[in-house]
Simulated scan of single mutants.
Amino acid sequence: MKRIYDFSRNPAQRNYTVADLKALKGSGKTLTMCNPADRDQITACVEAGIDLFVVGTDQMEDVRELAPTHFTGAGSSWAQFGSDDEIIAHAFEAMRRGADMYYTLRSFDMMERMASEGIPVQSHIGLVPTFSHHYGGLRAFGRTAEEALQVWDTLKRMEDVGVFAVEVECLAEEVLLAVNDKTSVVTFSLGSGAGGDAVFSFLADICGEASEEDTPPKHAHAFGNVGRLHKQIHDERVEALGKFHSEVANGNFPYAPTNIGMHAGEQDKFLEALDKWTPVHQ
């Protein structure tokens, strides 16, 4: 555990620092990375020993409460902000909240501007789903030497502008194996083999929960079946609600044990007083 000051200059500790992740190159050690989406999932990831997190900026307070020492990235989607100044402002806000790096898909100039301010910048190579229109749809990358070299060129350009880390998605595993030790950029492999510095997978995929896709992608290996439990909870909830509705409609509920009764003799006194009641104010 390393003692640091976070980017808001608060004393803190981290399981990994930016320097530690860069030093993974050639070490033979591979970390795990996941994207917990709520407090329960953050806690589960901590208890399971997941090394690195990537979350929404609005989750940073929960992360720093429940996983105060975990290296955690935040960021923004490509279309979330219009202007460069808005993106920079959001990046600083994420860092103030406790993020350790910031994810962006915007231009090389934007990446360089962030890096020049001292922000550890993460970007994305291989399949970038946001840009799948340009590719003719979702597909694998780097399966030909020509395309593999194009991905390498992009990675080196990112390195030149100061990018610290990249998500490497659906890139042929041979390509990542060949290039990982030829770049200082930290690589998070998602469906790109074991050649990265960390292996990233979506929590929902790992746990066997509902996917964004009707057919989960090839790399979405389920190590559990939490989806079955979600379905069981849903089915039991529907069954319970249906029974409640039916019992009320049939005049059976509320049941006697669920009701409150008056003390002995009080009902008769109340009914007698009710019959005699007249308004105090006319």
Rank of each mutant, 00 (worst) to 15 (best):
C45Y: 02
G73W: 01
D85P: 05
V54S: 03
T43K: 06
A67K: 13
T69P: 15
E61G: 07
A89H: 14
T43M: 04
V54Q: 03
F92M: 08
F92W: 10
Q59S: 09
F53I: 01
W78E: 14
S76H: 09
G56A: 14
E61H: 13
F92P: 07
D51W: 00
I88K: 06
L52M: 04
M60A: 12
A67D: 09
E65H: 12
T72D: 05
M60S: 06
T43Q: 04
D51V: 01
A89L: 08
E47M: 09
A44S: 11
G73C: 08
M60W: 10
D62F: 08
A91S: 15
V55A: 09
F71S: 01
F53K: 00
S77H: 12
G75C: 07
A67W: 12
V63F: 04
V55L: 13
Q80E: 13
S76W: 05
T43I: 10
V46Q: 08
F53A: 01
L52I: 11
Q59H: 15
I87A: 08
D84L: 11
V54N: 02
T57D: 05
V54G: 02
G49R: 09
G73F: 02
D58W: 13
S77E: 10
D62C: 08
V46S: 04
A89D: 14
S77N: 15
F81P: 00
G49H: 11
V54H: 02
I87S: 03
A79E: 13
G49C: 04
D85K: 12
